[in-house]
């Protein structure tokens, strides 16, 4: 399905958020995720279903003041 992840359109075969993170090789422990402007609890990543055209933001901590 088509998703918009961090502002980029991409195609994925993942069905769940965890599946998407694995596909993108992103460590779930190091990130926070928002789907359609709602923060998703980490405990739900494995079961959270993805839908066509979902807007997903995957963030982590970077250097900052």
């Amino acid at each position: 399905m088509k998703l918009i992840v961090n502002g980029e359109t991409l195609e994925t075969s993942a069905q769940t958020l965890k599946g998407l993170l694995d596909e993108l090789r992103v460590q779930a422990e190091r990130v926070a995720v928002e789907v359609n402007l709602s923060v998703v609890r980490k405990s739900e990543y494995a079961t959270f279903p993805l839908n066509e055209e979902d807007r997903i933001e995957i963030v982590n901590f970077v250097g900052g003041g």
Partner: peptide
């Protein structure tokens, strides 16, 4: 302190 920013996918 750290900042919160998009992961470079």
């Amino acid at each position: 302190t750290v900042a919160v920013r998009r992961v470079n996918i």
